[in-house]
């Protein structure tokens, strides 16, 4: 049951589009910045399968330029 947060950077001028795209995806919550081209993305998935699917969808987003991880949590013990 992983939880991650990222800083998502849109391709030039596509912040609104990125917000719309991210908001459409399941298990995603966003906090857009007011004054910079940055969006905070928090994901919360029930299991690894869903998580992997979500990663794929994120990879395919046209409006997304890069994604950097800022926080990670997984309650599976190693």
């Amino acid at each position: 049951m992983p939880i991650f947060s990222y800083l998502a950077l849109p391709i030039d001028g596509a912040r609104e589009m990125l917000c719309t795209d991210l908001a459409k995806l399941p298990h995603c919550e966003i906090i857009p910045s007011d004054n910079r081209e940055v969006v905070v993305l928090v994901t919360d998935t029930p299991d690894d399968d869903t998580e992997n699917k979500l990663q794929k969808s994120l990879n395919n987003l046209q409006s997304l330029q890069s994604l950097s991880l800022t926080f990670g949590y997984d309650d599976k013990e190693k």
Binding site: E29, V38, V40, F71
Partner: peptide
């Protein structure tokens, strides 16, 4: 979990603040 998500968001906001001085998140 809700708390962890809150912490996750807080962490991202803090990181953004360090990388982009003056950044503001209205929400």
């Amino acid at each position: 979990r809700r708390f962890l998500k809150y912490a996750a968001a807080g962490s991202a906001v803090a990181t953004a603040g360090a990388l982009f001085p003056g950044i503001s998140f209205g929400d």
